[in-house]
Design a binder for these strands. Structure first.
Lengths: 219, 219
DNA sequence: AATTTTATGTTAACATTGTTAACATTTAAA
DNA sequence: TTTAAATGTTAACAATGTTAACATAAAATT
């Protein structure tokens, strides 16, 4: 417990913790080595004993960030206890809420700036990290059970994802004053999705009242 | 024509030209003052006689960028010579192609990094620069004429735009290998739009064969 | 237990960045 | 012709990521 003056004990973990705390409030582009050294009471070059470069720390953040993101989304899509339509709704809602609650992390994960790093450590399409494969699997499940229109599932996954990504970006990059109506917006977006990718409006016993209203519009 | 050695003549315009040339090939984040001074054969601080800061140059780029962008999109939506459905299709196609052909400019205009600058010079919602108001007007036109479902036109505009923005971002931020199918993707996305925002599939004499196929599916 | 090696820290220096101050020269105005 | 304004240069700043040379604590080896 008692830390000696010179060796810190667990600097690497602490650097990461401080970095994640930082991007809760500010963009990664403002995360400097000085911020990290000041917060740990070390020198500006101490980080080089734990990461080969600043980018290596960013890389670790991206890796852990996708872990967190994937864990928030994928289980919702895989939960066989719930109706498919409910899973779609909840995962879409969670996606957008994740972006809104962690805008700087979301941009770090899906933005262009660190794309070169991201692409060396993960494959968004194939792995669990992004929820992409889980979404695609859910779509295919729906197609098999006849709820969803039979079409290219990869393309459909991309289009759903691009809607989520687009709305998330609009919300967090703040070039429109739409935060006050964000709930309405993604409910409406979700309704659009159902309209487009369901073969026909099947009677689904959804556990979410809102969904039933959408599928069986009140007369 | 003959330029003296000391005074350059038209440095301000030349700086802007070089900057725009630069982002045809590289991201704004790599556009340094050294790049600009080297390209003009001036010193690194010469730019300060024409712009109060680097951000002021970026600001000018954003302003001109939106001018270019708006000029590419708005006229397509306003062209009363064409059917509404064709205008939607062409403007959506043009939007995505603009992003793909000018990815660095697109990110400069719509990204977060320079949002603070953008928001001091333009209002995306109210002006012509982004095509937003033209899109909203077109939607309202469609609602009046009965082609489009009557609903909150602002929200519908946001949702259409978020789809365009989302797909554009996915295409240009390159975290998926989907460039090879980008035409299919936005055709499909456009079909989705029609499915969702048309009240019913009305017989529209579109001048684009593809559109007619979508609206009157081949039996 | 003593010595050596490894891990982990520091300080000092680099080049690159945007920026400013002090100075120089050319053009325009008085 | 003289003065003022516009537009250029050079030299220096602090902040950035990074590296080299050095220092110290902990672990491994003898």
């Amino acid at each position: 417990m008692i830390k000696n003056e010179y060796h810190h004990g667990n600097l690497k973990e602490e650097f990461l913790k401080i970095a994640f705390d930082f991007i809760l409030k500010d963009d990664v582009e403002n995360l400097t080595l000085k911020v990290l050294s000041d917060a740990t009471g070390t020198s500006r070059s101490a980080i080089y004993r734990h990461f080969v470069s600043k980018d290596a720390l960013i890389e670790m953040m991206i890796f852990k960030g996708f872990e967190e993101f994937g864990n928030a989304i994928s289980p919702l899509l895989k939960n066989q206890q719930k109706l498919l339509v409910d899973r779609f709704y909840l995962s879409a809602k969670t996606y957008i809420e994740f972006a809104m609650q962690n805008p700087n992390l979301y941009r770090l994960l899906f933005g262009k700036k660190y794309a070169h790093i991201r692409d060396t450590i993960i494959n968004i399409q194939d792995e669990e990290c992004s929820g992409f494969s889980a979404l695609k699997a859910a779509i295919e499940e729906g197609q098999r059970s006849g709820i969803l229109k039979k079409e290219d599932s990869f393309q459909r996954t991309i289009l759903i994802w691009s809607s989520l990504h687009g709305l998330s970006s609009l919300l967090i990059d703040g070039f429109m004053d739409i935060n006050n109506i964000h709930t309405e917006l993604y409910d409406k977006m979700f309704q659009d999705m159902l309209d487009t990718f369901t073969a026909k409006k099947i009677k689904l016993l959804s556990s979410i009242p809102f969904i039933n209203d959408m599928i069986h519009p009140a007369k």
